[in-house]
Design a protein around this nucleic acid. Structure first.
Lengths: 193, 193
DNA sequence: CTACTATTAGTACCTAGTACTAATACTGGA
DNA sequence: TCCAGTATTAGTACTAGGTACTAATAGTAG
């Protein structure tokens, strides 16, 4: 027996979701109904036509692509910064940041937040990380908001190096600490004093 | 005066590149020529029609989207692995991994490659990074291929900790070293011996 | 058996083209 | 200045993958 209308429509929604590139004709064959039935179904379910679906997918990704470069520049959102002194950023842990099997954030995302904050707080276009010593003090889970606080430690004798200490917290609880030794191309204003 | 054919065609390529969603009619208006001229131009330049362009963008992103979760699981491509012993991964530094202003890879990508390799080499579903000590020994540029080699250091007395040493090289030259202290939920086979 | 829903068929029309022919405009060189 | 060759434009037939609509037929539950 062919599927009932309800079953077919549920199945149709899924089929189109996993493959938005399918035509009404192909759908008609797959469900052994006429093309008109498929079109009625799409109307009832407010599923747009093939071309509109493709366009939507393309537009979505095109925007992302344009955005992705600047976004990748800093992981997390900087909410406060005083150059060569301190900075704070927040980072919301989402599904894509955690291990599927246990929901714990992958270490490199916490590192990325801290590291990019350390780079940002240095008042130098060419700041680079030279060394780093880090510690993950407790696992961070999906849905948690990580607040990273960076503090620049000014060393007297060092000309082209600056140390930045970063502490990351979730609800006041320490989850990550890191010490970043940063390479810089010019002296900081503070150091010149 | 209107643009020459050459100028128009060069401009056309760019226009379509930044906005693949533009129709021949809109292009004709923009360049003050007929729709037919635009079509001749597209043929000479082998630029596909609007719908094909949109489809291409959509397909590209759709694949990426489907892939993106598993890909994020490990940064770089693992080319050799012996659980609880050693592993090697390669990571090609692309535009999106570098600072725009100097073309140098952001530290957290090198860290991510090394860290996810350290996680992967541990024969435990619940391996997590506890501590890490890293050093960036020379900047890595766009276009370079980073080869990361991980080696598991087996400690006798430690039950739930394992140390992994990672060295990353570009063309034989050391660019990054890291020592990762990993937390694990169960003992390794080696340790049980 | 009837009322209602579900399905199918068919038509006119749409967009954004391709493929092709033919006419006209422009432009550089003898 | 005229002619050849290139560039541009116009127009027609046809395509995919639809929308929007009307109308006929099939199935089914009360």
């Amino acid at each position: 027996m062919r599927l009932s209308k309800k079953e077919r429509q549920g199945n149709l929604t899924d089929t189109i979701k996993v493959n938005p590139f399918i035509t009404d004709e192909e759908l008609a064959e797959r469900f052994r109904v006429s093309v008109q039935t498929i079109r009625l179904d799409r109307m009832e379910l407010s599923i747009p036509e093939l071309r509109e679906r493709i366009k939507y997918v393309a537009e979505k990704s095109f925007e992302d692509e344009v955005k992705s470069l600047p976004i990748e520049e800093i992981i997390g959102e900087i909410i406060d910064i005083e150059l060569d002194q301190s900075a704070i950023s927040i980072f919301d842990v989402k599904r894509e940041h955690v291990f599927i099997r246990n929901g714990i954030a992958r270490g490199h995302h916490l590192f990325a937040q801290a590291n990019s904050l350390a780079v940002a707080v240095i008042n130098d276009d060419l700041a680079l990380t030279a060394k780093s010593n880090i510690r993950f003090t407790r696992p961070v889970k999906e849905g948690e908001r990580v607040v990273a606080k960076a503090k620049v430690i000014h060393m007297k004798d060092q000309k082209d190096r600056t140390t930045v200490e970063v502490q990351s917290l979730v609800g006041g609880e320490l989850v990550f600490t890191g010490e970043f030794e940063m390479y810089r191309s010019k002296k900081s204003v503070k150091d010149e004093e």
